[in-house]
Nucleic acid binder design. Structure first.
Lengths: 334, 334
DNA sequence: TTGAAAGCGCTAACAT
DNA sequence: ATGTTAGCGCTTTCAA
């Protein structure tokens, strides 16, 4: 079903059909009506691809993600509700989640879509600096680096992490481990920084063996979580601050498997406050990022950029501690 | 950054560049190496749009949704994990969520993307029968009609609803209202059917004023929810079975606003078991649909279709009741 | 081994 | 008011 089919059926040229469906001037009412009739009858709809190849703008904003997991989908919800009424449509593209060359997925996806399919892009957790080279406005959420280059939206990772660890210290914990995030993400670095700051402020020394790389994913967090809960030598920590909810939830699972009671034997704190953190067992104490709002603000920024009225370059939103049932008083020393 | 830029920089024709980047035969190692060097240097990546206009297949599966809300994003998570390792990429397109002509969004989106951008599509909650006319494999999740035409994935709405209402009856409730879903969706019809079946089996008559259309969305559920909880005449129900979690959660909010205690004064049951249903106050008793699995199965089906090895046409997955804190014994009659 | 040229579906400038 | 034509970036014959 192409424009030529319509043209043939209506007995006019493709140019005329194009004019009719795009409401251009220079077509007689009679012809327009006839063409519209054929369009309706055949159920013709112009191909986004062909149209965008030819035209400058598509009215589509791209959301580039590495995969659809709880973090990116929460952002997507915020972006989606913010796009309502703006006249733009959303296209979420998951490139590079697939095996092979995950590195640089954001640049690849951007190159493949920019300039043609999408007018602007929101990139979720890019791991490298996005050059503006693609020629379209780009906003990064939770970027690799601190503010530089592309406009960004993130939350106050350091202070959020500090608050989480202060909460544990306030409960009497002294042996607090950290299951870190992805080393290639600024957020992970900042959360570890907050962890260290809180411990330093309380005069607690950090045991080097209690800081592990968890990689933000359940799979990558598995081995380090087991090492933390089953230390080959030395004492087990009484609390774990995980760099995100997905790995915190995995810690919960490993703990259950090992017969550790949470929070009696072990307290666990996460980061992000994805919906799943409220429904795991026990419900997770975590540092909430305003994910919906971050998504909505990113969309607003990217549309501002598109309309040439950029406001701020970098937006940092506050976090808040949500205390649920995975944290409790430190067990008394044996 | 187009293929011509690369060709010019490498001093070859665009055809040669195309051959090199697509690993076609008939290009000398020396030339190939030089071109690859330029490609790497310039960071060239072929445009998905131009490429898909010319080629038959794109290795991209489209997921067509009306918007990114908890239901569709849960499916997306399941689809996304299932796509891993298949060599396909995912493109989630939200058309028609925007004001105007929401009706027929799925056919519009399908026409715009099929045949060019995507090789196959999963359509979430289509409201009309999808004709196969677009020429690509399509699987519908939670479709408008029962099994017919396109392959579908859904869950056992009727028995799930029955179970929910039986749970309420078992708690002593007799005055049970139903906040229905979207009248244009088969799932809503089946859930109401289950509601009526359970009441009929218990010999309880349905008060016509206690069955309202809620439309699945918080906004559309607002007015009917208020009417249910504040009946202009007659008695207030002691329990509400809402057709999905989003409207059930809204009932919780309206109840809180009116000073009704849940579950002491009012029991509420939802449907879907989206993550949010565990984190609302109080946590919601609901009928769980296996959303991740439904998404994963839909992807499997659509890939089977693509490879010409279709297995089943219609897959119906079982639901299960998740009892949380929003349901309790019926209040004793005044 | 390489390049010229056609064409995918569409829009826009131009000609009739 | 309508049609002809060129061209968006790319792949694919086909000819050199």
């Amino acid at each position: 079903m192409t424009i030529s089919d319509v043209a043939r059926a209506a007995g006019v040229s493709v140019a005329t059909v194009s004019k009719v469906v795009n409401n251009r001037y220079g077509v007689s009412p009679a012809t327009a009506e006839r063409v519209l009739g054929v369009v309706a009858e055949l159920g013709y709809e112009s191909s986004l691809v062909a149209r965008s190849l030819r035209q400058r703008s598509t009215n589509v904003v791209g959301v580039l993600v590495a995969g659809f997991e709880p973090y990116s989908t929460e952002l997507l919800k915020g972006i989606s509700s913010a796009v309502e009424g703006t006249g733009y449509e959303l296209l979420a593209y998951s490139g590079g989640s697939d095996g092979g060359s995950m590195v640089g997925w954001e640049r690849r996806s951007l190159s493949r879509l920019a300039g043609t399919l999408i007018d602007a892009a929101i990139v979720v957790t890019p791991t490298l600096v996005l050059t503006e080279a693609q020629g379209i406005p780009v906003v990064a959420i939770d970027p690799h680096t601190g503010p530089e280059g592309t406009p960004t939206v993130d939350s106050d990772n350091t202070s959020g992490a500090r608050e989480a660890v202060e909460h544990l210290i306030g409960l009497g914990h002294r042996r607090i481990a950290h299951l870190g995030g992805r080393t290639d993400l600024e957020s992970a670095r900042l959360r570890e920084l907050g962890y260290r700051q809180a411990l330093a402020a309380a005069g607690i020394e950090v045991d080097p063996g209690w800081v592990r790389v968890g990689g933000y994913w359940p799979e990558t967090a598995d081995a380090p979580a087991r090492e933390l809960l089953d230390p080959p030598s030395g004492e087990r920590p009484t609390a774990v601050f995980a760099a995100n909810d997905q790995s915190a939830i995995h810690v919960l699972e490993v703990a259950a498997e090992k017969g550790l009671r949470v929070p009696e034997d072990l307290s666990v704190v996460g980061f992000d406050d994805i919906p799943e953190s409220a429904s795991c067992t026990p419900p997770l104490t975590t540092v909430a990022q305003p994910l919906h709002r971050m998504g909505a603000e990113a969309l607003r920024m990217v549309l501002d950029l598109l309309q040439g009225t950029p406001r701020e370059q970098h937006l940092r939103l506050p976090t808040s501690l949500v205390v649920r049932s995975s944290t409790g008083p430190a067990p008394s020393p044996r």
